[in-house]
Structures are given as C-alpha cells and as structure tokens.
Amino acid sequence: MSDQGSGRSSAGGWSSLLTSIVFYLVFTMASASFQSDIGAVSESAFAVVSSIEAIISKDEGGRGMESLVVEGDLLQSAQLLSRLVPRRGDCLKAHVIILSGFPCCVDQDPPTETDGPPGALAIARAAIGLGYHATVVTDECNRSVFKAAMHNVGHWAESSLGLETFKTEEEMTLSDNDRLASLVEKCDLIIACERAGPAADGHCYTMRGIDMTERGLIAPLHRIVELGRGAEGIQFVAIGDGGNEMGMGKVLKAILTNPKIKNGDKIAAVTAADYLIAASVSNWGGYALAAAAAVVREDDIRNKRLPGPQRSLKDWVNRCVPSEEDEVSLLDRCVQAGCRDGVSGQKERTVDGMSLETSMKCLRSICSLALGSERDLA
C-alpha cells in the first residue's frame, strides 16, 4: 500500500472513531439525564408494555404467582435496559451480566432445567441488539447446557456474547474470586432470569424443598449482586416464577403468605431485586423484557428523547426478540445436552410442565403486542 493510500485510510479511521465517540457522548449524556425520569414514555408505549406485562402475569401453571407481580416493574426494567450507559469512561459499550441456571433436577447430570437458558439468551440478544455486551453467568454444573444454548445462535452474538461459569463456594479458588470481581467491575446492569436464590439460611432450594446447595450444585452468584450493589451501585433486575429465584426477596411477604407456595418459609429467596418481573414461566419474562426494551428504545428515538438510528419498530423487535424458529432450535440443543423439564423431570422441550406450543403462543402474543404499537403509529 502506498503512503498516500495509507494516509487516506488512517484519516477515514480517525473520522469513524471520532463519529463513534461523539455519538457515544451524546447518547450517554441524553440517556444519563433521561434515566432520572424513568417514567417518561409515550402513552402508546406504556399501553403496549402494560399489555405484555398482563400476558406474562397470568397464572398459567396455577402456582399462585399472581401475588408476586409488581405492577409496572416490567416497564421500569425495560427503560433501565434500553437506556443503559457505561459507568466507566473507558468503555464505549455498556455491559450486562445475566445470571441464570436452576439445577433443580438434582439426581441428573446435568441437573439443569429448561426454564432459564431460553430466557437468559433472549435477554442477551436484546442487550446486544441495543448495542451492549452481554455475559451469561451460571453454575459449573450447568455449563454444558448453556454452552449448547449459545452454540451457533446467529450473527447477532458475534464477539459481544460471553459465558462464565463458577464452582461451588467451597471449590472457589482465588482466581475464581478475582474473575467474579472482575465481572462486577466491568458490569453496568445485572439481570437474573430463573436464577436460584439463597433463602434465609443461605441455601438454595427447589420448589419441593430439596437443598441444591447441600448437593454441591450452587455457585455463589449472589455475590455478584452484593458486590455490584455495595461497591458499584449497580442496579439489579430479576425474573422469576415461584418465589425461590434470586430477586424474589422484593415480595418476600407475598411468598410467605401465599397458600399455593408450599414450603414458602423454607425456600423463599431473600435477595430483593430493584425491579422484579414475575411471570408464569421465567423464559416468558425474558421474552417480555426483550420486547419491552425494543419498544422503549424505538419510542425514545422516534420522540427524539435519545439519539440513534431511525429503525422501524419491527426492526428493533427483530433485533431484540428471538423468533419461534430460534427458540425451538435452542430448546432442542438444550435437551440434546441433557436439559430436563423441571416439573416432569423428563428430557423434553417442555418448560415447567407446559408444552412447547404454550411457550410459543406466549412468544407470538408478546411480539404481536409489541408490533401492534407500530400499527398504532401508521
């Protein structure tokens, strides 16, 4: 290459870098200012997200989860995710940590259930679609399933999606502790989707009251939330469906007084989320958050609250929400890796005892509602 050609390339590179930095600064200032007014969305966006929340809040499994719903927390979670900015000045992209994994099939190897991986990957897709990095974090015993879930997910992941696994508290090394602390240092938002949460005694339990910590299955991922909140002031969003998931401490009283939640005083997770999304199935909560974040981002840009590319709502939804084909393929990969339905205990692509079609119907309804707001704008 000639010197002249090299000079033009260098100038173009500097121009591109300068454009990226300017956009980052404008977006950061606008988003940081806007996050303080978390309620600011259009009436149409508010209505859409509220309708999505209503869908996932129906107690399809008859487990009493309706009492765990915190009305409005889906919208606030979506706003937080959609308007996220890096805390560190040396980072151009925000980083979302997604905690997941519920090893409730304690006598199996792997002990991983089908509720969790799809929801976690849906959130990761949304985070990357919105322009961030995403890292999924789970227990070592769940590694094979999450690795299968993330295999060949598509071009959207590229170099922006990572997987980290940790061993039990007793097996954690100094290197593991440093790695965990490093994750927190680089993190801007923590989201848990169907993540086992410590109860009052510090142990994690299945809905039947089986002690997963005692079985040597649980990594101390709650420390990520504790470290993030304590030293860094990082906010924590959680998705759950039964009361024993991390973040459910926000509705602890409702869990303890719910007659449909057996062993509530034993299994109830005590860590409280800043924003809690209760759903009939946690995966559905992941779909809902992804779609709601897409709706909020499009709404913000269209109404000039935030800078950004003028994409259609359909484009934002496609970027952030998995298709039915994506989800069927992902569940197939998980089951092939040994994942099981947490209710039936069988290696099948059902979730919490509900058919694949039931989950896909929920996904279709969420997408239809999200895209319905586009029709309202026509």
Rank of each mutant, 00 (worst) to 15 (best):
S82E: 02
P118G: 06
P110A: 11
P103G: 02
L121V: 14
D115C: 05
L99P: 05
D59H: 02
A124V: 08
F102R: 03
V85Q: 13
G72A: 11
L99K: 08
P110H: 13
D90W: 12
S57F: 05
S67Q: 07
S82T: 11
F166M: 05
F146T: 01
D115R: 09
S77W: 12
L84I: 03
S57A: 15
T165N: 02
D115W: 11
R143T: 09
L75H: 05
D107W: 05
S100H: 03
F166Y: 08
P103R: 13
L161V: 10
G61Q: 06
T165H: 00
F102V: 01
I123D: 11
V145N: 08
S144Y: 02
L92R: 08
E158R: 15
K167M: 10
A126R: 03
A126T: 01
L75K: 04
F166A: 00
L163E: 07
C141T: 15
S67C: 01
L130E: 09
H151F: 12
V145A: 08
H155A: 10
L84T: 00
G72C: 09
D59L: 08
R87N: 00
R143V: 06
G162I: 04
I128Y: 12
D109L: 10
C91W: 07
G89T: 00
S82W: 08
T168L: 05
G129M: 03
V96H: 05
E158K: 15
M150I: 10
Q76E: 07
H95N: 08
P111Q: 01
G129L: 02
T135V: 12
D115Q: 08
L68Y: 05
L75R: 00
E60M: 14
S144G: 02
R63S: 10
D90Y: 08
E140S: 09
D73G: 04
T138Y: 07
I123G: 06
G101K: 02
D73H: 14
A148Y: 07
P110T: 12
P118S: 06
H95Y: 04
E158A: 15
T165L: 00
R87W: 00
K167S: 14
V96D: 02
G162C: 06
A122S: 11
P103K: 04
E66Q: 14
R143I: 11
R63Y: 12
I56A: 10
R87H: 00
S57D: 06
F146M: 07
H151A: 15
G64H: 14
E169I: 12
C91K: 11
V137C: 11
R125P: 11
A126V: 01
S57I: 07
E113N: 11
A134M: 03
E71W: 13
